[in-house]
C-alpha cells in the first residue's frame, strides 16, 4: 500500500509521516509531493510504463496550494486515471470552509474532507488491505 501526500508546506509532510509511521505504515510506503504537477507526473509515468508497483492506494491532497490547487489535481486525475485504478483521495485543509465542503460533496472521486493535522488514529483506520 502506498500513500501520496501533496502539500506545499513542509510541516504537514513531517507530521503526517510521523503519525503514519506511528500507525504502522513504513517510511517507504509514503511519497511526498510539494506541488500538483509532481504528483501528476509520477502517476502518468507509471501508467505509461505500465508499472503499477508504486501505485498509491491513498492520496492526501491540500486544497490551497500555489500554481495548482487540490481541485486542479482532481480534474487532472479524473482525466488521467481510469476508474478501476482510481486511488482513494482525501482533501486535507487547515479549515473546513463551508463552500469547500459543498464543492467536495459534488466530486465523486473525493472520499472525504479532513482538517489538518491527521493523527495516527486516522491512519490506523485506513484499509490496509487495499493495494
Amino acid at each position: 500500500m502506498k500513500l501520496y501526500f501533496i502539500d506545499d508546506d513542509e510541516a504537514p509532510h513531517i507530521y503526517h509521516r510521523l503519525m503514519a509511521e506511528e500507525s504502522g505504515i513504513s517510511e517507504d510506503q509514503i511519497e511526498n509531493f510539494y506541488e500538483v504537477d509532481q504528483a501528476i507526473a509520477k502517476l502518468e509515468g507509471q501508467i505509461n510504463a505500465q508499472d503499477l508497483s508504486q501505485w498509491p492506494s491513498y492520496i492526501f491532497v491540500d486544497i490551497n496550494m500555489p500554481y495548482k490547487s487540490g481541485y486542479d489535481f482532481v480534474k487532472e486525475v479524473e482525466a488521467l486515471i481510469p476508474q478501476e485504478l482510481m486511488p482513494v483521495i482525501y482533501f486535507v485543509s487547515s479549515t473546513k470552509n463551508p463552500s469547500d465542503i459543498q464543492k467536495v460533496e459534488a466530486i465523486d472521486i473525493i472520499k472525504g474532507f479532513e482538517t489538518k493535522f491527521l493523527e495516527s488514529e486516522f491512519f490506523k483506520s485506513l484499509d490496509f488491505q487495499k493495494n
Binding site: 508546506d9 510541516a11 504537514p12 510521523l18 487547515s94 479549515t95 489538518k116 493535522f117
Partner: peptide
C-alpha cells in the same frame, strides 16, 4: 482567519508532539 489557522495548527500540533 483562514490563513492564520494553518500556522497555528502547525504550532499546536508540533508543540503537542
Amino acid at each position: 482567519s483562514h490563513d492564520l489557522r494553518a500556522p497555528i495548527i502547525t504550532i499546536k500540533s508540533f508543540s503537542n508532539l
